[in-house]
Amino acid sequence: MGLPKFNYVAPETVQEACQILEKLGGQAKVMAGGTDLLIKMKHGALRPKTIVGLRKIKELRKISFRKNQGLFIGAMALLEEVASHPKVKKLYPAVAYAASQTATVQIRNMGTVVGNICNAAPSADNIPSLMAFGAELIIASPNGERRILLENFFKGPGEVNLNRGELVKGVLVPPPPEGSGVSYQFISQRSKVDIAAVCVAAMVVIDKGRTRDVKIVLGAVAPTPIRALEAEGLLRGKKLADRSIQKAAEQASQEARPITDMRATSEYRRLMVAVLTKRALLEARQMALAS
């Protein structure tokens, strides 16, 4: 199928973009790289009257790091740019790794990290590690800006908490705490270039031998990426021993709500949540101890 007919506007400022979105409401769709949007339009799943392209808004391409504020990834920063950014690789290796494992080379040079977030697929590669780092989204509107924790952004597959006139400017990732480590793990049918059937990120902060903080994020096993809160509870404040990691992994598997689809059965997904959670925690622990 070819693309249906649509109008295309390319505002030059965030303010202008928000005003257009305010005016057009549900009839408009924002496009960053277009690698999800255009496919959905070709398949008739979306029929926006207008596409609001962000390509001309220069400030959105930015990736920057400040010691006290953390990392900012603009809405137009390409997956490949995030994956290869020296600061991201050094301080947020799980974020760089997730970006580097998204789709294929061609798509990584078109698609964006923020686009991957806003597409809100339960299996999105870039969400779990960012959630594990406690990332926030910066959302602009004609009346100013607001911030929202990434984990509160999703309502369901493809559905997000955005109001009329709002535009995600970028994602802000707090500075990694002392003694922390974050790991991203995923599994798919093909070995490397494939959509995740299950993905897991884990963050641990180890302080004087104990787990000061922990986050476990599960992807593709519920309508949105979710935290495995009870599994986290098993670890918080405790020593991060192999046995407790195993227990937390099994608990996380119980918290998952997987479905059977053509990518995996729910049984297999549940099993894999345990395996990947264990691997993520082990790697995160190793990184925390090495930091």
Binding site: Q189, R190, S191, K192, V193, D194, I195, M262, R263
Partner: peptide
């Protein structure tokens, strides 16, 4: 092929899993 009542569900290369170069 993932089939449901005679209907093929995986009709794109995203879900029909041909090995990729890296495999």
């Amino acid at each position: 092929f993932v089939m449901d009542k005679g209907k093929t569900l995986n009709t794109t290369f995203l879900d029909y899993k041909i090995p990729a170069a890296m495999d």
